[in-house]
Amino acid sequence: MKRFGLDDITADRLLSGRVAPADAPPGYGTTVDAIQAVANSSSATDAARETLTVAAMVEAVRSKMPAHQPLRRRSMLAQLLSAKVAAIAAMSVLGATAAAAATNTLPAPAQTAISHAASHVGVSVPAPNRHENAHATPQHGMPDNGGKANAGRHSASAGDNAVGPDATGKAKYGLCTAYAAGPSTTNPHSGKNDSVAFTNLQKAADEAGMSVADYCKNAEPPTNDGTTTTTGSVPKTDTTPASNSHAATPGSNPHGRTPPVSTPPVSTPPVSGRPVSTPPVSGPPVSTPPVPTPTNSHRP
């Protein structure tokens, strides 16, 4: 049979199955039949393959969803905040501890540890007053009631039970050193200046008719000559670095001014000797899909 040329419209209609075999152009009847056979054929769906494929697709779609990112960001923010909070808390504790240690008002074990540790970094922190020295005279720089000195720190008054160190005796140098350190930089409300020790220092200066700064100018490091075995209330000068000794020794201050503030490191070694660290966030970030997820009982 002779075939006629097809125009574009007829060709389009043939291929889109819109031409019935009876209406087919001459020579294209069997072609229309073949096209109709394809158009009318139906393929049964393989249920097992469909289940597998759909489950895999759902998995792929969900793994690409950005729903995890905001949660992850929140998680990172939470970690940063946790770290900041932990750092602030640690600094507050350290600041208060440093002030308390400088005024010898910590419990004996803590005072011992800090005094020992601070001696290695050149900071003079008085050692605790042992119980057996609790009956020593105040001239030896020890409180006459031992641990009650701690109560005086909290009462912020020297007239209570607490007596505190003797600012005219061996404790003078240590008190002056602590005084020169100034207020706590991290905790200005630590009450350092209201402590019994500083009250004693102020009282001693008043009795000498001088300001505390002037009174501290002639503070000399006590010597460890064995005559006064007061076991630790004496600041160790042999571990004081040159810069600190210069600052805390008025006699070597050519300007005659108030001894410059010898800034003891705020980061007084922690009592436990372990660095403060932010606890790691355990476990993966919790993720919640943004849409209700259907039960996927078909998932392989």
Partner: peptide
């Protein structure tokens, strides 16, 4: 929208609608 959100029913609807043609 459902398929983008990982909805299994929506994904299955696409599959059933288009897979026979795709396979052929």
């Amino acid at each position: 929208s459902g398929a983008k959100a990982g909805d299994e029913v929506a994904v299955a609807r696409f599959y059933r609608d288009l897979n026979p043609t795709l396979v052929r």
